[in-house]
């Protein structure tokens, strides 16, 4: 496998007696859409929090774009081109939608120790933000306060914020969580377009979406990788079926 953009080796993270990430290794190749699935409590969010730096692993390593980022804080990884969205929408609720996105653009446009000029009048930041907003279909809602947006719009805004930083890799934590049928369909369509431009790691519970979008799927159970393969092979994998797909355990959205 040539040139993995993201390479995780023997990653472990414990919370007290619970092993949330258990000797986990994973490669994500440049240009692919790599989905991570697993039953509730499999440690998916814990894993991606370690990928993007919100959480430190107990052991193991993470390389991104050829660099060891294991101990880098989140803001440094973001500067390297690793952007994430959050499972539970995490936006600046009292800001306008476009301010949220423009701040992401600003973060990657030199330092922000500028105390005098009006940042909202910096045209190139506004334009970059607007482009990202239109990319996700939120162009009309730019000036709305985030707390006034619908849940679906907030999910799309999460994506616009991540896009505005022009990342090399998008790590999306359940972008479809809580979305209705039509909203989900729109999100799938959007992700299908985005995957042509950027490498994506997608954590998602919506199996239809995952199998429709993913180049490869990694299946997590109790913090361990039990399978990593193309969708067709995952569908056939007996262990996966037993752990996850086959029996009608709750394959719904959680928290």
């Amino acid at each position: 496998m040539a040139d993995p953009l993201l390479s995780v080796k023997n990653l472990s993270r414990r919370f007290g007696g619970i092993v949330a990430t258990d000797d986990l290794s994973l490669d994500v190749v440049r240009g692919e859409l790599h989905a991570i699935i697993g039953p509730n409590g499999a440690g998916k969010t814990t894993l991606i929090s370690q990928l993007t730096g919100q959480l430190q692993p107990n052991s193991g390593s993470i390389h991104f774009a050829g660099r060891d980022v294991t101990r880098l804080p989140a803001y440094r990884r973001s500067a390297l081109g690793l952007a994430r969205s959050f499972q539970i929408t995490s936006l600046l609720k009292d800001f306008t939608a476009i301010d949220n996105v423009a701040l992401a653009a600003q973060a990657h446009d030199g330092h922000s120790f500028r105390f005098w000029g009006n940042a909202r009048k910096e045209l190139h930041l506004r334009k970059a933000a607007m482009a990202a907003m239109e990319r996700v279909g939120l162009g009309q809602r730019a000036e709305s306060i985030v707390s006034e947006l619908s849940h679906g719009e907030q999910r799309e805004l999460e994506l616009a914020v991540a896009l505005a930083s022009k990342p090399q890799m998008l790590v999306l934590d359940e972008p479809m969580a809580g979305l209705g049928v039509t909203e989900s369909a729109r999100m799938v369509k959007l992700l299908r377009e985005l995957r042509r431009e950027v490498t994506i790691v997608l954590v998602e519970h919506d199996m239809d979406a995952v199998f429709a979008l993913a180049d490869r799927i990694t299946v997590l159970v109790y913090g361990r990788v039990i399978a990593c393969d193309v969708p067709a092979a995952i569908r056939q994998n007996p262990e996966v079926r037993r752990a996850y797909l086959g029996d009608q355990q709750v394959v719904t959205h959680h928290g």
Partner: peptide, 24 residues
């Protein structure tokens, strides 16, 4: 209203988000 000020207010509103988009 400056770049700096927006960052500071952003951090007040949601620190984790601001770190995630690249601000220390």
């Amino acid at each position: 209203n400056s770049r700096f000020g927006l960052v500071v207010q952003g951090v007040r509103s949601n620190e984790q988000r601001m770190e995630a988009i690249g601000f220390h």
